[in-house]
């Protein structure tokens, strides 16, 4: 699923500044929803989108280590400017949706975006 489609489904705002053409270049095969970075580090395999309610810089660091290419903050949360700058620097797209975590994940799942590629 293209990141531009994900943006549309979640009615999300792009905080890292890319336009739709750039979002079309990021193809997301799997996603995960999690507020615990310890668990992302321990259990995430090859997911390329992380949905989370946490907005500190360690979310971006964690994404960077896991090769996650996009992070979507839920429930309308907006991170500090330095967090957004860090993400831009690492070429990680940041989206923000008003939806809560459960609903956002459910809507993407409904449209066919799964967790690990084999579930």
């Amino acid at each position: 699923m293209l990141l531009s489609d994900i943006k549309k489904i979640l009615d999300a705002e792009v905080l890292s500044g890319e336009d739709d053409a750039a979002l079309c270049k990021k193809d997301i095969h799997t996603a995960c929803g999690c507020d615990l970075m310890s668990d992302v580090l321990a259990f995430v395999k090859d997911q390329s989108l992380l949905l989370t309610g946490l907005i500190n810089s360690q979310v971006i660091r964690t994404a960077e280590m896991m090769d996650i290419v996009a992070v979507c903050f839920v429930r309308g949360k907006t991170p500090a400017e330095d967090v957004i700058e860090l993400a831009k620097d690492k070429d990680i797209t940041i989206l923000s949706t008003q939806l809560p975590l459960y609903t956002a994940c459910g809507m993407l799942y409904d449209e066919g975006l799964r967790g690990r590629s084999n579930d």
Binding site: D35, L36, M37, S38, D39, L41, A42, T52, L54, N56, Q58, V59, T62
Partner: peptide, 10 residues
């Protein structure tokens, strides 16, 4: 901050 699950060393 999202850490402290006791998963790091394992």
């Amino acid at each position: 901050l999202g850490f402290g699950a006791g998963m790091g060393l394992p």
